[in-house]
Design a protein around this nucleic acid. Structure first.
Length: 582
RNA sequence: GGGCUCGUAGUGAAGCGGUUAUCACGCCUCCCUGUCACGGAGGAGAUCGCCGGUUCGAUCCCGGUCGGGCCCGCCA
């Protein structure tokens, strides 16, 4: 009878057959033990010299050989049990042994707790995947997908797959282009997201749509961003005019995944909705980690009359002086503070002023520039106690927020304020529709040109284009953006206007988004939706800080698949067929 | 495109202007009948990423280059 190793204890006294890999072999000369591993776990095989053929073969077996073992399951004597493995109470006394395949000495040791370089693990991913951790990860991921599918299907969402060979998107990330053989000189592009298709599904009368969609973007990767391809839980709902309908639809799923699937604790049952500007002002980020406080405090009024030159000139120029209070930071060494100063500078700060509170005193090179009243006011406003350090930022509003937001995050990491067992969720809402592009020195879309401006066509007439808000929302989980969505603009007239603000005429819009605009002329229902970055969310659930850890076959940081050796040079014949001149 | 950082046996680490380049795991041979990351004895295995410079002498210092990682830019 064929069985899995984990089931062995249920078959004491029976003869069973197990197949798997050799985890380790312990040869005692006159007695050999082999730990056999399959996808369920490990089982100890005992090979006695009396079973001559099996014993002889067992002497030659090496790690990672693939074997088939037949024998009788026996209870182990009390003193021979191994509490460290699930099947440690039994063992299999071999009758026959077959080697189904040999293995070279593996380049990475999978049964060791030695650090392994990621490079090597990716090159030999098929061996790396045999490790229990990776096995569990892939199992868990499948459950995760299934969990989401079940939730959506119970709520009238229909799964529809959309084309992978699609069109180049003129805005946004770089495309992966696919040359057309039939139409030489023309190209498909892999979709950056199924955005236009899902909106067309709404026009097509699909009530609610979802898809675990592959998305492709040719942008440089990060620890939380895969190169090339990633998956979104993409969804859209028709006849929705208020984004709150989408958000409240998704809240229970994400909370349930956090608690029941990932076994974590929610920071709060209620998921706050935080306007973009408020998030920037309080946390210095549009993806704030809410597991800790350390909020940015505006001291501009408190220090209105300061004689401290740096602050004085910033305030006179309409900028802001803000600060964060870092609990217990007086323990930081000079060189540690220098490191944080470098970080502040890398975000555009001129320096990093701070006040240390110790033994009731405010110690700081800049303390002498403040009146006792100002010093007292700073301390009270910041809630600083002995042992704390208040770090200042002074610049124009956006820069101060960015600098202190980054520091808030770095300090939280340094002082271990990010509890991995807690999930803090928030929706960031009311993103600015337009942003000022400093480099190009012109107005540009803040986020997504397809979302509805809040207030509709009328709002677009505003003189202050930067004050126009988009009906758009991101979900944030522990400092990661895990979802982005919006109420879509389904009205061709408003669509033309949205682009018109940036100086694009109707012909331009038609040439870029003709299919979608045209569709909107034939009775497009109002609709709204969103897309979750399922890889990134899963990474948080699995306590990983590198997104490649939760993907079976990721590309490395240079966009290379070091196992398959892609990208690669192709045969001239293939290029010729595509019309490429050699 | 830019910044920081790493590169030493198969693997993970240590080291240092002059060493026989150290340790652990793994590997090979032999011994071993109750181990479980078995144990014991012995052994093989490294042009110290690559190129150039400084020096009497470079794995070590300097410059460049290649490769990995993290970050900025970028990611509608």
């Amino acid at each position: 009878m064929r069985t899995y190793t984990e089931a062995a204890p249920q078959h004491v006294g029976e003869t069973i057959e197990v197949k798997g890999w050799v985890q380790t072999r312990r040869d005692h000369g006159g007695l050999i033990f082999i730990d056999i591993r399959d996808h369920t776990g490990i089982l100890q095989l005992v090979i006695h010299p009396e079973t001559e053929a099996a014993f002889h073969l067992a002497e030659q077996v090496r790690d990672e050989y693939v074997i088939k073992a037949v024998g009788k399951v026996a209870e182990r004597d009390e003193h021979l049990r191994n509490p460290n493995i699930a099947t440690g109470g039994v063992e299999l006394h071999l009758e026959t042994l077959d080697v189904l395949n040999k293995s070279d000495v593996p380049p990475i040791q999978i049964n060791s707790d030695q650090n392994l370089s990621e490079e090597l693990r990716l090159k030999y991913r098929y061996i790396d995947l045999r490790r229990p951790k990776m096995q569990q990860m892939l199992q868990k991921r499948a459950q995760y997908y299934s969990w989401m599918r079940t939730y959506l299907e119970e709520r009238e969402f229909t799964e529809v797959t959309t084309p992978i060979l699609a069109n180049s998107s003129p805005e946004g990330a770089r495309d992966f282009l696919i040359p057309s053989r039939i139409h030489q000189g023309k190209f498909y592009a892999l979709p950056q997201a199924p955005q236009q298709f899902k909106q067309l599904l709404m026009v097509g009368g699909i009530h609610r749509y979802y898809q675990l969609a592959a998305c492709f973007r040719d942008e440089d990767p990060r620890a939380d961003r895969l190169y090339g391809e990633f998956y979104q839980l993409d969804l859209e709902m028709s006849f929705v005019e208020d984004g709150e309908e989408v958000r409240s639809m998704m809240d229970p799923l994400i909370k349930d995944l956090s608690v029941s699937f990932a076994h974590k604790t929610l920071l709060s049952e209620d998921i706050p909705r935080i306007p973009y500007q408020e998030a920037m002002d309080r946390f210095g980020s549009d993806k704030p980690d809410l597991r800790f406080g350390m909020e940015l405090v505006d001291l501009s009024d408190t220090l209105q009359d300061t004689e401290f030159g740096v602050f004085k000139s910033v305030l006179a120029g309409g900028g802001k002086v803000k600060a964060i209070c870092v609990k217990g930071a007086s323990s930081l060494s000079r060189s540690q503070i220098d490191k944080f100063t470098d970080i502040a500078k890398s975000e555009g700060a001129g320096g990093l002023a701070y006040i240390t509170y110790e033994a009731g005193e405010a110690k700081s090179p800049i303390a002498k520039f403040f009146t006792p009243e100002q010093l007292a006011a700073i301390r009270t406003t910041m809630g600083a106690e002995d042992g704390d350090v208040v770090f200042f930022g002074s610049d124009k509003r956006e820069t101060v927020n960015k600098v202190l937001g980054r520091l808030r995050n770095e300090f939280a990491t340094h002082f271990n304020l990010k509890d991995p067992n807690v999930i803090a969720l928030a929706w960031i809402v009311d993103f600015p529709f337009y942003e000022w592009d400093d480099k190009a020195n012109k107005l540009d879309f803040g986020h997504n040109p397809f979302s509805m401006p809040k207030g509709g066509a009328e709002a677009l007439e505003s003189d202050d284009k930067l004050s126009i808000l988009a009906d758009q929302y991101d979900m944030v989980m522990n400092g990661y953006e895990i979802c982005s969505g919006g109420v879509r603009n389904h009205n061709p007239e408003i669509m033309y206007k949205v682009f018109g603000v940036l100086g694009y005429d109707q012909a331009y819009v038609d040439s870029r988004f003709g299919a979608m605009i045209n569709a909107f002329k034939f009775g497009a229902p109002p609709h709204a939706g969103c897309a979750f970055g399922v890889d990134r969310m899963f990474m948080v659930f699995m306590d990983e800080e590198n997104i490649r850890e939760i993907v079976a076959f990721p590309k490395n940081g240079s966009g290379v698949d070091v196992m398959m050796n892609s990208p690669t040079i192709v045969e001239p014949a293939q290029l010729k067929e595509l019309g490429v001149k050699l």
